[in-house]
């Protein structure tokens, strides 16, 4: 006679206390701070919120942040697709190395990334000295902010595409070639439809990070109000300035963008899952 063995979680009290623990931790660590942002932002009423929001410098910070994101996303979209296509469709020496190198921005701390750019392009840097003589200002101006943002967000698209494209293989594209498709036709008609949801997912992540990046940007920004101050930097500045309500107002914008990102992300994930199940049905 074998004794009846209980697995972990078989007893209802274990299950419920575990669920309760997870829920309360989530509430405490994630939901409460999020709610607190909005509570703080609206502390002085709607009018104060709007005043803080429509402040000249806040508006500029919003504009700059969106501008940088609007440039970062297409740059990394092209770069990511190109890179993913290269490493999944061709065999060449150094391919594995290239895949590893893509992850550099994930591996180094954003502050270090900012400092690296400063070392290169700052007025004492290798390239920076030449730029200084040409009177070209990259660091402490928006181009510098764009450069580091592109750097820290460049793996997102490629990372999303590579596994998918590896899984899909190159048969469909080879078939397209034998049928006489041109390079562009191949991409538009075969590759893109296959990867569109993963691509969109990568874009959403890129955008979220580009909008929220603090560390790298703070190193190269120079913190000039109304000029090189992005939204995350603006939050810190206002907070240092004893303007907590203003800081939380700007923070609420970032939180809002984050929530929109989450919604879009869930939608995309759902579509991706559908596509994947369709794909496996086709294979079966």
């Amino acid at each position: 006679m074998t004794p009846h063995r209980l697995r972990v979680g078989d007893q209802p009290w274990v299950k419920w206390s575990l669920i309760g623990l997870a829920l309360s931790l989530t509430t405490l660590l994630l939901v409460m701070p999020l709610v607190a942002i909005f509570v703080q932002a609206f502390q002085g009423g709607l009018q104060t919120y709007l005043d803080n929001l429509l402040d000249h410098y806040t508006l500029h910070a919003i504009g700059l942040t969106l501008f940088v994101a609007a440039l970062t996303v297409p740059i990394n979209l092209v770069f990511g697709v190109f890179l993913a296509w290269l490493v999944t469709r061709f065999e060449f020496t150094g391919r594995k190395l290239l895949i590893t190198l893509i992850d550099i921005p994930f591996a180094v701390s954003p502050v270090v990334a900012g400092l690296l750019y400063l070392l290169l392009y700052g007025s004492n840097g290798w390239i920076g000295r030449w730029l200084y003589d040409q009177d070209i200002q990259l660091m402490f101006a928006w181009p510098g902010i764009l450069m580091v943002t592109v750097f820290v967000t460049c793996p997102f698209v490629a990372r999303e595409l590579i596994p998918l494209m590896q899984q899909q293989g190159k048969e469909e594209e080879e078939a397209g070639v034998t049928l006489g498709a041109s390079g562009w036709q191949l991409f538009r008609r075969v590759t893109l439809p296959n990867i569109q949801w993963a691509l969109l997912y990568g874009v959403v992540l890129t955008n979220a990070r580009a909008v929220g990046e603090f560390g790298a940007v703070s190193v190269v920004s120079g913190n000039i109000r109304g000029e090189t101050n992005t939204l995350p930097l603006h939050v810190e500045l206002l907070y240092q300035d004893y303007n907590a309500v203003g800081a939380f107002t700007s923070a609420s914008l970032l939180a809002g963008i984050a929530m929109i990102t989450l919604i879009v992300k869930s939608l995309v994930e759902w579509r991706q899952a559908r596509q994947r199940s369709r794909l496996s049905e086709e294979i079966l």
Binding site: L118, S123, N124, M139, Q240
Partner: peptide
Amino acid sequence: IRQSHGGSSRQAQAIIEGLR
């Protein structure tokens, strides 16, 4: 007049690195 604000040691560092 444009203003840049930050911890003053960091501000000095930025000027050395090319903040004009």
